[in-house]
Design a protein around this nucleic acid. Structure first.
Length: 288
DNA sequence: AAGACGTGGAA
DNA sequence: TTTCCAAGTCT
């Protein structure tokens, strides 16, 4: 396609100076940043990421502590199972890869918590390999600029990767920039709500704009389930309690957290099943 | 393959 | 106030 050049030029002038884009940030730092960025805004990741890498500068450092320490340090970033998986990742990297974050997509995909996006992000941004990197921003930019749709359709790894591949320059280094640039364009300009088309480097060739900004066709996707009063909220309350305590938290203390006993039970059972909590003689703790 | 999985900020 | 959505992954 013809969007790589203008987007790369725009990126050169408008890229944010983010920690993981600094020279020498390292594959481990980039891997940790990608875990934290999964469904979590950039602004909320900056601080916790720095603290994390200060405490665990290498995979072996993290692998050497109990998984519960990772869950505790995760704090309020959300989706705490990511902390568990990142810890498991550190163990696998230490035991199976000599403490070095692997650089091949297939090896990365085999790591816990590393999916199609994260594997390619690490291979490309940490190691400079040439792959399409597709996240929610990229999917939206392609849907609009190229396909003329208001939003991306349902995710399809095969189609999405092929669509981004068609955008990438042949050169490894240029392709790496384009991956970051399209992502950045989606994050700053071609946003989900109120895109800033007046500042978009693709405005003169955007298929969606050319078509007169048609609304999304087909059924709107189901909204996110309500958080207030959900099992997820109860899990969050219980886990916050475990995080805050150095000693086992008695059952009675957890019971005081939420009025609905059945819901409490579901939440606690779920946390136990996920390995985010473990039972001990006197109560419950983070995993050892 | 639709749904579960946290949390907080912006509209 | 409510709703939307944020560099996804797993089952």
């Amino acid at each position: 396609m013809t969007i790589a050049a203008p987007v790369n030029e725009w990126f050169a002038q408008n890229r944010r100076d983010l920690p993981w884009r600094r020279d020498g940030f390292g594959a481990w730092g980039i891997l940790v940043s990608e875990f934290m960025l999964q469904q979590t805004p950039v602004a909320r990741v900056i601080g916790p990421l720095a603290a994390w890498l200060d405490r665990w500068p290498t995979p072996a450092d993290l692998a050497a502590v109990p998984a519960g320490e990772a869950v505790r340090a995760w704090g309020r970033l959300g989706y705490p199972r990511r902390a568990l998986r990142l810890h498991a990742c550190a163990v696998a990297i230490t035991d199976l890869h000599g403490g070095v974050v692997p650089e091949n997509v297939d090896e990365l995909l085999a790591l816990p918590g590393v999916g199609e996006y994260t594997a390619r992000a690490v291979a490309v941004f940490a190691y400079g390999h040439r792959h399409p990197v597709v996240d929610t921003n990229v999917r939206r930019v392609i849907a609009r600029a190229i396909e003329g749709q208001a939003d991306a359709g349902p995710p399809s790894t095969k189609r999405d990767l092929a669509a981004m591949e068609a955008v990438l320059p042949a050169d490894d280094a240029a392709a790496r920039v384009t991956n970051a640039a399209v992502m950045e364009l989606g994050a700053l300009i071609c946003t989900a709500r109120s895109p800033r088309c007046d500042a978009c480097p693709l405005a003169d060739r955007c298929a969606w704009r050319a078509a007169g900004y048609p609304e999304r066709l087909g059924p709107t996707r189901p909204g996110q389930a309500k958080y207030e009063g959900s099992d997820r909220q109860v899990r969050g309350l219980i886990l916050a309690e475990l995080r805050a305590s150095d000693i086992p938290v008695p059952r009675a203390e957890l019971d005081a957290l939420w009025p609905d006993a059945a819901q409490r039970e579901r939440a606690l059972t779920g946390l136990l099943a996920d390995g985010l909590a473990v039972a001990s003689e006197s109560g419950f703790t983070l995993p050892n």
